[in-house]
């Protein structure tokens, strides 16, 4: 492998990392602004124009807070929990195609950290490991409320992973590839998967809410019953890591929804732009299109949070096991029949 490629990939990975962090940071600001908008308030408006410096102030505050450690025999695991949550939230972005080719300094740069054959399985693997951060942290806190939150998070994530996987299978049957790059290329222009897989998209979206522990499925940190759920005992930047990981997860899952069902970096008229304005312009517009879709889905997450009240735990399990899983199996069968009939 030549060193130029390594440098190129390293720079790209650092940029993706920085963008993920920035998006996660400003999601906290956006969450408060959207909440204020939906509740007819003003929201944060003191630090910077429109409260734009609020995330920085929050971060500074979290760093400066006292580091409280509960009386637990598992100091190390207590420390590791937030780290796992953060790491798994960040490494998913390795397989996501952020854009098409970019021509810089006589090199063609593929805007994807790595295009492995089985990228979707990689995403699922990382997501399924992500629950350890919550479980280990919640258990090591040595607190009953934390443990309850951790156990709820684990059972919820395991249940919804099944429906999520099944909803993806219908998509994979159509695309015939597990690589996110191939799936994106197949959705050229406006040929998006959402037109073919509306039910699959709906199931995936609901499961994404459950996997990221967002309202209406945030039973793992349900304040009215569990104080703060798995991060009750956490303070300072450790709690900041858990909250940050949630927003990073939200960003990544919005990206996945856009890439899988809404064409990723594809947008109508991309061929025209490519021939008239050059490849780089088309690619940059594509990145813009992808980020517009991502921002919409992040907004959607917040919109739902302030619209739909939290589910009860049995309702959550019933929805997952008795509605979503049969629905996704039916979806797979219908997709199979359609592929046989039309292809």
């Amino acid at each position: 492998m030549d060193s130029a490629l390594i440098i190129e990939k390293s720079i790209f990975i650092v940029v993706v990392f920085a963008v993920t962090m920035l998006m996660a940071m400003y999601s906290t600001w956006a969450e408060r602004k959207v909440a204020a908008f939906l509740q007819d308030r003003v929201g944060p408006n003191r630090a910077g124009w429109g409260g734009l410096l609020q995330p920085l102030a929050d971060g500074l505050k979290l760093f400066a807070k006292e580091e409280f450690e509960p009386n637990t025999p598992n100091k190390f695991l207590f420390f590791v929990g937030p780290g796992i949550a953060m790491a798994t939230a960040l490494i998913t972005s390795a397989v996501i195609p952020w854009g098409d080719k970019l021509e810089l300094f006589g090199r063609t740069i593929q805007l994807q950290a790595t295009d492995i054959d089985v990228s979707i399985l990689y995403v699922f693997g990382v997501v399924s490991v992500g629950v350890y951060g919550i479980m280990i942290g919640g258990w090591a806190s040595n607190n009953k409320f934390s443990l309850m939150g951790a156990v709820r998070a684990a059972s919820q994530m395991v249940s919804y992973e099944v429906a999520m996987g099944l909803s993806i299978i219908a998509l994979l049957m159509m695309s015939g590839s597990l690589s996110l790059h191939d799936i994106t290329v197949q959705q050229h222009g406006m040929n998006w998967n959402i037109w073919y897989q509306p039910v699959g998209f709906l199931i995936f979206l609901i499961c994404a809410f459950a996997e990221t522990n967002r309202t209406p499925f945030d039973l793992a940190e349900c304040e009215s019953e569990l104080i703060g759920g798995y991060h009750t005992e956490y303070s300072s930047m450790k709690m900041g890591f858990y909250l940050f990981a949630e927003y990073a997860n939200m960003f990544i899952s919005s990206t996945l929804i856009s890439v899988l069902y809404f064409g990723g970096y594809n947008y109508p008229g991309m061929d025209w732009v490519g021939t008239n304005w050059g490849t780089n312009a088309a690619t940059l517009l594509g990145i813009g299109a992808l980020f517009a879709k991502i921002c919409f889905f992040i907004f959607f997450y917040m919109w739902v949070r302030w619209t739909i009240p939290r589910f009860r735990y049995d309702q959550l399990m019933n929805l997952g096991w008795k509605i979503l899983i049969p629905l996704s199996i039916i979806n797979i069968m219908i997709t199979g029949v359609c592929i046989l009939a039309f292809k």
Partner: peptide, 15 residues
Amino acid sequence: QLIVYAGAIMVLFLF
């Protein structure tokens, strides 16, 4: 291996 053992079976064990 990651999905089945680390992600599913061991999560249930720990649970």
